[in-house]
Amino acid sequence: MTSQLTDKNLSGQKIGYVGLGNMGRAMARHLHATGADVVVWNRSTGPAEAAVAAGMRCAATLPELAREIGGGIICLNLTTAEVVEQVLLGQGGLIEGLQPGALLIDFGTTGLPATKKFAEHVTWVDAPVSGGQVGAEAATLTIMAGGSEAAFQRALPVLRVVGRNVTHLGPVGSGQVTKLANQLIVAQTIDAVAQALRLAELAGVDSAKVREALLGGFADSRILQLHGDRMVRRDFVPGGRSALQLKDVRLICELAASLGFQSPTLDNCRAQWERMVEKEGLGDVDHSGLFMLYDK
């Protein structure tokens, strides 16, 4: 079920938000703008202080945030399954203050086994997103949700605020599987676009004109439109960091192995991202910077 509804009034509703990175800070701001009483927590103080300056409230600890939200909704926007586990179940984690009826929405790409584990402890909606920092700022994210029908319906008003297209895929973990399918396409398409544009350059053809010629044809994609432009300009200021792209590719490979799915192109994809991040030390470069492997 896909929703494109636009009712975005959460006036008076308490919502917790944990993780105020490039995407989380924008998403928390959108929720606050609806009239919600947003209580935040972040590992570093700078983003939390900025949220307070914008009118939100900051909890001193994770258990305090959980107690403040009570049986309401807490959103997580964190980088890895390990960080989510520490925030939820670790010493001083949310679990120490969670109240009956609380619902957690995980916007990160956390993987299937970890998601199922977390859902054993609390009502959980996995809602990974696509659209990057640009989509978070514009509240136009695509959201892939997994969870029970009842949990999804509770989460839906929040999801509508930060996303444009919201799809309920099925039970807990379904959102993660769908996001990994998305990331498989993204990771390999970035590689294909990088190869195509660099190949054109080496053949003496202007890569900017090649990109322009391909737009609107069968080879067109958001990656050719946005990341292809970055590649042509050699502008790899991070929006989506390569280290996180590698993390996602490894989660894809983990899922594939668990299902007995074999793919030489997936193996090569993982090798390319590992080369970029671990051998070349480019983990903090935007993932469109995979182009740099072919630019040498």
Rank of each mutant, 00 (worst) to 15 (best):
K279I: 10
A155Q: 06
Q133V: 15
A119V: 12
G260N: 13
D106M: 05
P47E: 05
A138Y: 01
T34M: 13
A50S: 13
D229I: 00
M292V: 13
V125T: 03
H168F: 01
L156N: 01
F236M: 04
L159K: 06
R275M: 09
R29N: 13
E280G: 00
L282Y: 06
G97I: 10
R211G: 06
Q176K: 03
A219N: 01
A194W: 03
S221M: 08
G90L: 03
L224P: 11
G170D: 07
F236A: 04
G93S: 08
I252G: 02
G175D: 07
A150V: 13
D220N: 14
A53Y: 07
R275G: 01
C269I: 05
R241H: 12
E212V: 04
L5D: 15
H168E: 04
A213H: 04
A219H: 08
L78N: 03
C253D: 13
E278T: 11
T178V: 12
G281I: 12
V158Q: 05
G16A: 12
E64C: 03
A203S: 12
F107V: 00
R29G: 15
A127F: 07
V18F: 08
V162D: 07
G70T: 06
L5R: 14
G281D: 13
V40T: 14
Q13W: 04
L62P: 05
G175I: 01
R164P: 00
V177D: 00
V177W: 00
L197A: 06
I185T: 13
R164F: 05
G260C: 08
C58V: 09
V277M: 14
N182E: 10
Q86M: 08
D220I: 09
G71V: 01
L10I: 11
A196L: 12
G108F: 04
G97R: 09
I69R: 02
Q153R: 14
I185K: 00
G131S: 12
G217F: 03
A59D: 10
V125G: 03
D191L: 15
A150C: 01
K116N: 08
G228R: 06
C58A: 15
E120I: 01
P63Y: 04
G135I: 09
C58Y: 00
V162H: 05
T6S: 14
E254W: 02
R275P: 00
R57C: 01
T6W: 07
A36W: 11
H30D: 04
A256V: 08
R57Y: 00
T140P: 11
T110Q: 01
S288M: 05
V158M: 10
G93E: 09
